[in-house]
Design a protein around this nucleic acid. Structure first.
Lengths: 340, 340
DNA sequence: CAAAAAAGCCAAAGCGCTTTGGAAGACTCT
DNA sequence: AGAGTCTTCCAAAGCGCTTTGGCTTTTTTG
């Protein structure tokens, strides 16, 4: 059932039927009702390919997925996706993932924009002066950045959490508890979020005349194993920290294992605070010692970004507003006063 | 730069240019070369929307993503995606995720097929007599099932791993080590994979005249917390098992925590084997006691399914061949002889 | 060497929608 | 009543590609 048939059946022109269906004003309300009714009754759905060709609108949002044998997609991604999908569903938006060589995403961005394959894109895990953001900005497709870049010479719309504030608070708490030697087990410090977190910790330390020792900060891919290794290195060192801030729950698993392997305890020998993106399958309160966390649902962020993308597509949102969400600090059993 | 312009520039008809580009035989080889060359030089890329409208081919594969506030997308999904993306990239295939109400996926399947939004779809986590498989089969769109359904009255193409064989082997090993009371902490037993795993364990037990006690099998969502709870329940029971088979590494984290909380040890008091889908961020050899696993890379499965989908789209693969991959049993420190 | 076959190309008709530029009729004013 | 203004609808022109059917020109064949 296509427009032509429907129009013929109603003894109307395609123009009128199309307009009635798309809510244009120049059509009699009763006619519109008739059309709507017939469309529903016959299950008419406009062919998206045709509509795309005519309008350029696709009803899809895009994401360039970096791939490659040595590239691991972050497990955070799936939670983010849950949120995004949740919103997208209610608006009949689909998401298209365009796999790209991790070292050459530019080609793919250019392709999806040139081909008008999607109405908008989002960018995640931005780095300082992120080239993708610059590219997408000049290409002129609506977009939202999940996270922030820094050092770009233009503004852009983003939704981020207050990573600096979160880790500042976490560090401040530890300092108040008497800790003097903090360590930070961070994610890849080429990404802005990690830079912000380190900044937060440093700022809290500086406020008390303390520093983050050079060997007390490390930046690695967020796996259990890396958490373990980093912790061993920190604690077997000459000047071990009494408190650790950690950028992910998954790494925290490794931290806990390392502490135990060394015959130490949490929080007796070392306090621990980790960032929690709120995975349904791994919860900080269920660690052997319930974990204190800085908490922010990445799923909610996904939904919010879908919402903003939809708004930009339909022209409801414009400009370059960045929004920064506060992060909860949730204190549980894994922090205590510094050992004597 | 569109076809018309390119044709005009070459003083050829659109027909000829189109045919030259798409490899049709009725065009002189030298002409073809000229066209190809000019196309490349001017960066001509056919507009996909137009091509879609004319041919019905989209260059995309589809996946219906169940969403909803209470629906968690499996973290396995992201690993699968890595593999899929890896292959798709090299073939300029995009993946479109269509979010759907988890309780009504049928509407979405019908929509993407009726609208010809994708060239093929894949289905994951099938259940026995899976309605999605039946639906997609009658709708007549090319598809591959990741996993298997059972009890359908037609054949269909799938790629699955030998879940029954894997858990049969695992259980057999435990039995050989003298264990008599095995327990199975399984995934949701509405899904075929879980059913197959249970079947494998039961078959191994039966071969030695043993049984899987009713209270020694549980089927839950694969979270850390559920692994913990199940283990506590099992071990605090009157008739505790001496060995546990577990359907996921994430649950195994909970198992390990529970065993420790009870003051017991692995493998001294209880042996443990878990299934490992090969996540880069959580590896069985890095558990406090290195974990024995049944191992199968879900990422490889993703790549394989992309490959088969591509083959079906281009007509290279037909029929309903199902393939079943063997699973490795990797023995590490978490298994030992049954306690006296 | 003429007839038949093959090769190489083209014009034009879709694919199914949106949108431009009117046109016909109904209403409002003076 | 005639001029102007809405309201409501339509015919037709795209959007950029593929593909059908046919027309030349060249090659093959008996």
């Amino acid at each position: 059932m296509n427009l032509k048939q429907l129009a013929h059946m109603l003894a109307l022109s395609q123009t009128t039927v199309s307009r009635a269906l798309n809510g244009y004003p120049e059509v009699n309300e009763e006619t519109r009702r008739r059309v709507m009714d017939a469309a529903k009754r016959h299950g008419y759905r406009p062919n998206p390919s045709a509509r795309r060709l005519a309008t350029g609108k696709t009803g899809m949002i895009g994401y360039v997925l970096p791939t490659g044998a040595s590239v691991d997609i972050d497990p955070h991604f799936v939670e983010f996706l849950s949120g995004l999908g949740d919103y997208a569903r209610s608006h009949e938006l689909d998401l298209v993932l365009s796999p790209a060589d991790a070292d050459d995403q530019e080609t793919t961005y250019r392709r999806i924009v040139a081909n008008r394959q999607v109405d908008a894109v989002y960018i995640s895990s931005p780095t300082p002066a992120d080239r993708r953001v610059a590219l997408v900005n000049t290409l002129g497709i609506p977009f939202i950045v999940h996270g922030r870049s820094e050092g770009l010479d233009f503004d852009y719309p983003f939704t981020d959490i207050d990573n600096e504030g979160a880790f500042h608070e976490a560090a401040r708490l530890l300092i108040q508890l008497g800790h003097r030697r903090l360590a930070l087990i961070n994610g890849d410090d080429r990404e802005t979020f990690a830079i912000h977190r380190e900044r937060g910790v440093r700022r809290a330390l500086a406020a008390s005349g303390l520093e983050l020792g050079e060997r007390h900060v490390c930046s690695v891919a967020m796996t259990e194993e890396n958490g373990y290794r980093a912790t061993r290195r920190l604690l077997e060192d000459g000047d071990p920290p009494t408190a650790i801030a950690c950028s992910s729950l998954i790494m925290a698993l490794g931290v806990v294992r390392a502490v135990r392997d060394l015959g130490l305890s949490i929080p007796g020998d070392v306090s621990l605070i980790a960032h929690d993106d709120v995975f349904p399958w791994l919860r900080p309160e269920n660690f052997s010692v319930p974990l204190s966390t800085t908490r922010s649902s990445i799923r909610l962020a996904g939904a919010r970004i879908a919402e903003r993308l939809a708004a930009r597509i339909s022209g409801l949102e414009e400009g370059a507003r960045g929004e920064v969400w506060p992060v909860d600090l949730v204190v549980r059993g894994s922090v205590a006063g510094a050992p004597a």
